[in-house]
């Protein structure tokens, strides 16, 4: 399968298979960057995979005070789900429990979509009749009296149906340390790409999964072909020199954004080189039958 080597890093001739998703973007601000980030981190916690969390969410980027609607430091957050209904539910729960509750926070729409999701339009009822509606130009805000003043929340946020989830890179290295260094380097480069999130812890997932299991109640199980400790016991995908594998999963507001992130990650891995980082890079797919979007590594290598 391997056909390419870039500066000593072996690149599999394979592709990442990604799926259409529903997504939205929010801008969370607060009095300080620390508290804007705290609200965003809390809201995007336990949102690594739609399999068990209902949605995938993460921080896109920090936003300078001069670029936010209220002139305070902000954080842009992206939320992905498989259906509009689930996205709406996750949005309401997460903003209601994690952003509304965070000191000094405000929450704005940050995506123009053809359809809208309810944001403040649902949360306003928390104010028990004391909510105040304000329309400034084309934008509609709700002001909710809370114990530290007011929570300001945009009435709705945009929905996109052309988001893409499941772009990925499989980073294979000699041992856990070099593999982790490689993954961290790739994550740093990919986080700089706008309109994407890496939903797993620190952007990295160590327990890649396959569909199904020997147990009929389990829908996803360990990706045994990429487990180094099973190399001799199963039909392994790993070479003799591979001691550890880490995966980076990418969700983006568009296929182009996911492609850009994968390109940036590959470039960073190639630049780091095989001695300090990855010996080999692959990608996960399901034979190309499940997802509409195929990101071929050979097209993305620098």
């Amino acid at each position: 399968m391997r056909t390419l080597t870039a500066k000593g890093v072996r690149i599999d001739d394979t592709f990442a298979e990604a799926f259409d998703m529903r997504a939205t973007a929010l801008l969370i601000t607060a009095d300080t960057a620390r508290w804007a980030k705290q609200a965003a981190v809390t809201m995007t916690g336990f949102a690594t995979s739609v399999i068990g969390c209902g949605c995938e969410a993460g921080i896109d980027r920090m936003v300078k005070a001069s670029e936010t609607p209220d002139g305070r430091p902000g954080v842009r957050v992206l939320l992905f789900a498989t259906s509009t209904g689930e996205l709406q539910k996750q949005l309401a729960n997460r903003v209601g429990q994690c952003v509304l509750t965070s000191p000094g926070s405000a929450c704005y729409a940050d995506l123009a979509g053809t359809e809208n999701l309810r944001l403040g339009n649902g949360l306003r009822y928390f104010a028990d009749g004391w909510q105040i509606s304000k329309r400034f130009g084309a934008r509609h805000f709700w002001r909710l009296p809370v114990m530290d003043g007011e929570f300001v929340c945009e009435a709705t946020t945009g929905l996109t149906k052309t988001a893409v989830g499941g772009g990925n890179l499989l980073i294979m290295g000699a041992n856990t340390e070099t593999t982790r260094t490689a993954a961290e380097t790739a994550v740093e480069a990919m986080m700089a790409v706008s309109d994407v999130i890496l939903p797993f812890p620190g952007g990295i997932v160590r327990s890649g999964s396959k569909v199904g299991s020997k147990y009929k109640q389990v829908i996803a199980s360990t990706n045994h072909a990429y487990c180094p400790t099973l190399r001799g016991a199963v039909a392994s995908e790993l070479d003799q020199d591979i001691g550890a594998v880490l995966e980076i999963v990418i969700d983006g507001l568009s296929a182009a954004a996911v492609g850009n992130a994968m390109r940036a990650g590959l470039a960073a891995l190639v630049k780091l080189g095989p001695k300090r980082g990855a010996l080999r890079v692959g990608a996960g797919n399901y034979g190309g039958k499940l997802g509409r979007h195929h990101f071929h590594l050979k097209d993305l290598v620098p």
């Binding site: 601000t29 609607p69 209220d70 002139g71 305070r72 405000a106 105040i132 304000k134 400034f136 130009g137 805000f141 002001r143 003043g149 007011e150 300001v152």
Partner: peptide
């Protein structure tokens, strides 16, 4: 009070 809503109004 120093309200966030005043910042939005000012920007508007």
């Amino acid at each position: 009070h120093d309200l966030v809503a005043h910042r939005l109004l000012a920007a508007h």
